[in-house]
Amino acid sequence: MTWPDSLPVAQVRIARPTDQLDEVVRFYVDGLGLRELARFENHAGYDGVMVGLPGADYHLEFTSHVDGSPGAAPSAENLLVLYFAGEAAMADVVRRLGVFGAEPVEAENPYWAATGGVAFPDPDGWIVMLVPQPVF
């Protein structure tokens, strides 16, 4: 599937601030297994790190500002959902997160447990939902 002609997007970035940049990056890279794609320091008072899957078409950016960042995650329903190609692939990531020291939490919405999803909070409390198979 390709992007529609009416929206010729080349990259997608989801960005958010944190006051725990190093810990958040460790969670997503060492714990979850994403790759660090790029990093910058002192850009107008901001430091940041982009992490993602292979390639840079879809990635996350975490930033911290010299004056601090907004507070904690807004709710337990703000999710980053990662769909896997089967339970075995997901189980490897769940094990790695456990070794990393991350503890799963109960999802707010029972839909996720019914689909076999496992929720992990990152150091800021944002939820990463791992689901064993794609929905479509």
Rank of each mutant, 00 (worst) to 15 (best):
P104C: 04
V9S: 10
A102T: 11
P104Y: 09
V9P: 00
I14C: 08
P8K: 09
F100P: 11
S64L: 00
R35G: 10
G48M: 01
G98S: 03
E36W: 02
D47I: 02
G101K: 12
P134K: 13
N109E: 15
A56F: 01
A119V: 15
A88L: 06
W112K: 14
V135R: 04
T115S: 06
R13A: 03
D47F: 06
L130R: 00
A44F: 07
V66C: 05
W126S: 06
Y111S: 08
H59R: 12
Y58K: 02
D122C: 02
V118R: 03
D47M: 06
A88V: 07
A73F: 04
M50K: 07
V131G: 04
L37D: 01
A91L: 11
H65I: 01
G86Q: 11
A15K: 00
E23T: 13
W112N: 12
V128A: 06
V93F: 03
F27S: 01
G48W: 00
R35L: 11
F40W: 10
D30N: 07
D67C: 05
S75P: 12
E106P: 03
P17C: 03
F40C: 10
D5C: 01
G52K: 05
R95K: 15
R39T: 08
P134W: 11
A91T: 13
V49L: 02
Y28R: 00
A56E: 08
A15Q: 03
L79N: 09
M90W: 04
G116E: 13
G55K: 10
L130I: 09
V49Y: 01
P132H: 10
D5H: 14
H65T: 12
G125Y: 11
T63H: 03
E41Q: 14
G71W: 03
L34M: 12
R35T: 09
P132Y: 06
A72E: 15
Q11C: 00
P54K: 08
H65W: 10
E41L: 09
R26C: 14
A114E: 14
L7P: 09
W112I: 13
S75L: 09
G33R: 01
P134N: 14
A107I: 01
E23M: 03
L82P: 05
A114Y: 05
M129A: 12
F62A: 04
D47L: 07
G48N: 04
V25C: 04
V131Q: 08
F84T: 04
F62H: 02
P70K: 11
S75A: 13
E61M: 13
R39P: 08
F62Q: 00
M90N: 00
V9C: 11
Y46S: 10
E23I: 05
F136W: 07
L21P: 05
R95N: 14
G101C: 15
M90A: 07
T115N: 13
R95L: 14
F27E: 07
P121Q: 04
L7R: 11
Y111Q: 15
Q133W: 07
I14V: 15
Y58H: 06
A15I: 05
M1C: 15
V81D: 00
P8R: 06
S69I: 15
